[in-house]
Design a binder for these strands. Structure first.
Length: 462
RNA sequence: GGCCCCAUCGUCUAACGGUUAGGAUCUACGGUUUUCAUCCGUAUUACAGGAGUUCAAAUCUCCUUGGGGUCACCA
């Protein structure tokens, strides 16, 4: 069975880059009827926060991503880690290190001065004398001092590291007894049965350390997929400064989960020429072996296009439901259908969709001056009056075509082009020269409101 | 700086030794539309550079250059 996980540290909101690796892990597990776990990496008591962990769960809810079982918090697993640390200590694979912070930084400085690699010097590796007074020891693992460690990465291929280049006896438990990242990641992944680790390639250089832990504890090493980073326009790792990186900001801006997820899955992965992927298609077609090796730049132009696509293809009842988030409540069924049909083709976001709806529904409070200047000359008022008069007498007005007939009659009787009535009427109804078809607008707002807007425009521009 | 990773249109990508290097997005133009948008059509734009291997290289090898990541008692 395929078991994957997403393991964020709760230092802030769910990041767009994190979401991508979460999505890929999720898809791979779901495709194989496996399991996908959410684990919060909160071993650093100083930096984590409960709110951040909750924010991540909230984002998952919005996106419709589910995880198996309960959220796992590393902070609640101290006894487990303690047990394995003790085991390593007992087996002589780890040891207490009494080096003080000062001594350690002194060591680092001399190494830097000599242009050597900064690393722990193994002072207490084989120590069995009397420990120095007043020092709470950290615990270090005995790492190999020669040879190579190979990360068999399924995205990058085999990556070989020389122990002398990268390894030292790293700390697995701090002086206060709390375990460190590289240790707990390995322990948790092994204990949770995670056998496919999909994560950002910034973790690639940590992986040898985790492999040391796996081997020391006799655990099976999982398959690794280190997926490339998402970069900003400067080509650097995406950070808070690069605009919207909080997943929930996309909700506020009016993006749909379907569009965001579709956008993200196509960053660094593709399936032929296909651009549109439903969740079912993603689950069916995604395979991490097809993930690209190179980083991609975060550019949301395509996200806009995808979002527009999904809005156009979302049923009206569902759209009406989503629009409540943007202070728009649509009641009448027929009106809702006509309105959404005409505006859903013109919105890139749900927020825009709500604004477009309000533009139709609300009586204009101002008129675009340039447009008025251009249109309200010659017999524009006369045409509007003629149309108003005909409309007043008309009955049984329901469909856009009912209104369209009246416009046609006026055009015909006055011997004018369609533009001669369309433009002034458009200004009267919407206050500007762009917007949905006028027949639809009138059908949506109804006869009385139409007449009211015409009358208001005439008195304003006479 | 050490170690590691990466390199096709502006951007996301296809190609898995043989193609006029394809698609999407963006941009521009045209068609449709009374307008705007949608939709449709057309166009511009790419194999980082250099050596090899091969009948044949975007694809394999090496070098150069460029970019990125990582080097904690952070995760």
């Amino acid at each position: 069975m395929i078991v994957t996980r997403f393991a964020p540290s709760p230092t802030g909101y769910l990041h767009i880059g994190g979401l991508r690796t979460a999505l890929l892990s999720y898809l791979w597990a779901k495709k194989n009827n496996g399991k996908f776990f959410l684990r919060i990496e909160d071993t650093d008591k100083a930096r984590n926060s409960v709110e951040a962990a909750e924010a991540i769960v909230k984002a998952f809810d919005w996106l419709g991503l589910s995880y198996d079982g309960e959220v796992i918090y590393q902070s609640s697993r101290d006894e487990i880690y303690a047990k394995y640390i003790k085991q390593l200590l007992d087996e002589g694979k780890a040891y207490y290190c009494y080096m003080s912070k000062e001594e350690l930084s002194e060591l680092r400085e001399t190494q830097m001065a000599a242009k050597e690699r900064t690393m722990y010097n193994g002072k207490y590796r084989d120590f069995n004398g009397t420990p120095p007074e007043g020092i709470e020891p950290a615990i270090r693992i005995k790492a190999p001092q020669s040879g190579t460690i190979t990360v068999k990465d399924k995205v990058k291929g085999d990556v070989v590291f020389n122990a002398v280049d990268i390894l030292d006896d790293f700390v697995i438990a701090r002086a206060d007894g709390s375990p460190t990242y590289n240790f707990v990641v390995a322990v948790d992944d092994a204990l949770m049965g995670v056998n496919e680790v999909i994560r950002g390639d910034d973790h690639l250089s940590n992986t040898p350390k985790q492999i040391i832990v796996y081997e020391a504890l006799g655990f099976t090493i999982p398959n690794f997929y280190h997926v490339p980073m998402i970069h900003n326009h400067e080509g650097k790792k995406l950070s808070k400064r690069d605009g919207a990186t909080d997943v929930m900001e996309y909700k506020e801006m009016g993006y749909t989960p379907a569009a965001l997820l579709n956008f993200l899955v196509r960053l660094g992965w593709s399936h032929g020429d296909q651009e549109i992927f439903s969740m079912d298609e993603m689950k069916e077609l995604f395979n991490p072996k097809d993930i690209n090796k190179s980083a991609s730049i975060y550019n949301t132009e395509k996200l806009d296009w995808l979002n527009a696509h999904y809005i156009k293809n979302t049923p009206n009842t569902e759209l009406a439901e989503l629009l409540r988030e943007y202070d728009l409540v649509l009641t009448s069924h027929d009106k809702k259908e006509i309105l959404l049909d005409v505006i859903k083709e013109r919105a890139k976001t749900l927020k825009e969709l709500a604004e477009l709806a309000k533009e139709v529904l609300n009586t204009p409070t101002s008129y675009d001056e340039k447009a008025v200047h251009k249109v309200f000359k010659e017999n524009a008022i006369e045409v509007l009056n003629a149309f108003g008069a005909k409309l007043t007498k008309a009955e049984e007005l329901h469909l856009p075509s009912d209104y369209h007939h009246i416009m046609e009659e006026v055009v015909h009787e006055m011997g004018i082009g369609f533009g001669k009535i369309g433009q002034p009427l458009r200004i009267a109804l919407l206050g500007k020269l762009s917007g949905p078809g006028l027949d639809s607008v009138m059908a949506i707002i109804g006869k009385n409101e139409t007449l009211l807007r015409i009358a208001q425009a005439i008195t304003t521009h006479e």
